[in-house]
């Protein structure tokens, strides 16, 4: 096998770094006009039903929460909402889904063995954080592949190059 170029080609990464920056900061407007949404969630050991909610950014959401077996809690990440839900007593929660992304709602009152894993998901679309993460991952991988194909950077080469830099310093 022939010898490979030693110097890392930073320039290979530059276009990918710029693209990654664009993926991170590109403004993405609201795509759907806000709506009123009324959703009923029932809480039982150890499940929310429905377990996944999809709304759009700007929607005014009204949740009606009802526990059917034991006392549960409802804690919604990202929105600072927490309620205690007694069996037979419904609770209504209203909020505007301003923040995009995926937010978990969890039981916040010890309700049994699997209480820590009683989870539901609220997806406020468009789910920009998810698509940004996908874009970044694909770009980082593409950058690495191009870097490897261009430089043939191998284990020993990387190690020796680093060592020489250390010695020179």
């Amino acid at each position: 096998m022939k010898r490979f170029p030693r110097r890392r080609r930073i320039t290979v990464w530059l276009p990918f770094a710029l693209l990654a920056l664009a993926v991170l900061v590109a403004p993405i407007p609201r795509l759907v006009p806000p709506q009123e949404r009324e959703i009923t969630i029932s809480l039982t050991q150890f499940e929310f039903s429905p377990a996944r909610l999809r709304v759009n950014q700007g929607d005014r959401v009204t949740l009606t929460l009802a526990a059917s077996d034991v006392v549960h809690g409802f804690y919604l990440e990202g929105y600072g909402i927490e309620e205690r839900i007694e069996p037979g007593v419904t609770k209504r929660i209203e909020f505007v889904a301003e923040r995009r992304g995926k937010f978990r709602y969890r039981c916040s009152v010890n309700c049994g063995a699997l209480h820590p894993f009683m989870v539901g998901e609220l997806i406020v679309g468009p789910n920009i954080p998810f698509w940004r993460a996908m874009g970044l991952t694909l770009l980082a991988l593409a950058g690495l592949l191009v870097y490897l194909q261009r430089t043939g950077a191998g284990y020993e080469e990387v190690v020796n190059e680093s060592f020489e830099i250390e010695e020179a310093a």
Partner: peptide, 30 residues
């Protein structure tokens, strides 16, 4: 019960998974 940085967790997870993927691909190349 006070969850710690619940909003940040998915981003920490991405921040761990991505280097893991790149390291793995580099090993695969070797």
């Amino acid at each position: 019960w006070t969850p710690l940085w619940p909003d940040l967790i998915p981003f920490l997870q991405v921040g761990v998974l991505m280097p893991g993927l790149l390291f793995a691909v580099w090993i695969a190349y070797q």
